[in-house]
Design a protein around this nucleic acid. Sequence first.
DNA 1: ATCAATGATCTACAATAATGCATCAAAAAA
DNA 2: TTTTTTGATGCATTATTGTAGATCATTGAT
Lengths: 194, 194
Amino acid sequence: MNAVIDISKSLKRAREAKGLSQRTLADLSGVPQSHISKIESGGVDLRISSLVEIALALDMELKLVPRKGLSAVNSIIRSTQAKAQSKSMLDVMAKLQRAADQLNTALAGDRGVAQLRSRINELSRISLPPESEGKLKALAKQLQKLITGKTEVSSLQTVLEEVNRLRNEAVHQRDSEPEGRWRSAYSLDGDDDA
Amino acid sequence: MNAVIDISKSLKRAREAKGLSQRTLADLSGVPQSHISKIESGGVDLRISSLVEIALALDMELKLVPRKGLSAVNSIIRSTQAKAQSKSMLDVMAKLQRAADQLNTALAGDRGVAQLRSRINELSRISLPPESEGKLKALAKQLQKLITGKTEVSSLQTVLEEVNRLRNEAVHQRDSEPEGRWRSAYSLDGDDDA
DNA sequence: ATCAATGATCTACAATAATGCATCAAAAAA
DNA sequence: TTTTTTGATGCATTATTGTAGATCATTGAT
């Protein structure tokens, strides 16, 4: 049942994309967490009613698509998801840049901070893969801690290293991947909510 | 479970559009006829695997669509179905016209046949609703019988009355329905298979 | 260090899907 | 007219989902 596995994966991906835990989704959908765990792992052959409730909670809907329309539909699904992803990524990157600016102001004259800010700006001009989003979030969080003085300035070096790592990974993947889907999605500007 | 009912209806509609009986679909899909009957009437809350097998046999696929992409997807589904329908309808109408031509040649000089042919040509210029397709098919079949001499020429009158009935129904529905979805679908020309 | 969150796994039970026949009533075909 | 086809319904049985808890192991946060 490849199609059943595909549906399971779609559900899991959508949940993760929304940053929901299984327990939260359980509350939203009315399907118990233990069952959601089994569903996501492809361990049960779900009934339509259960699928529809979970999908609803994930802002999705179940459709039967004629084969002839399938590629067009797949393309719409992909582009809708990419849009959501790229908006989210842009938000996180903007937050990271703001944090770097704030830190630079707070620790004016610190060469490490200036370097970090410069690197972050550089990073914002590179197309990053969707999986980087979590790491960017973590970096923003760490910068917030530096701004409020909750961590030692010595951790700046760790942050800088992580930024460099992200950059190197993106550059490396860009070299070895075909010209990028996420590049064009990431470069999409504006906010064309329908 | 409105969504579940919608899925059931989609399955039934698709089956009927392909002119399959439940027993034939049962053979194609591996799901027993008695179960298909229950499914189509919304009497069971189907498992994904069963749905996928039936959909496959009906040249359809199950997709999870993000809400933001839904209207675009619905529009593709509708237009794909309308294309299939209009092509099918054009085929049947062409067959009917050919049969009328053949009959006119075979029974040259018969006033009834000439009148019938004229009426059929007139009908082909009217936008007919999708549900007329079955009746058109039946008419074409009857004309074939007249050509081969398998029925009495006296049944010409019955055929003529049916053609008139179809015409009157279409005209009547056109008057009382908003300007037509099926008009534009029917008027689609060409054969733009992707 | 402890506590909280997370996903995975288990249990027992009730409800229901799914299956494979058979049959019926109505409609269609011969 | 009879026969065939069609969709609906019934039956008995098996397998599975779904539920509601509880708990575990791991990870992350404090």
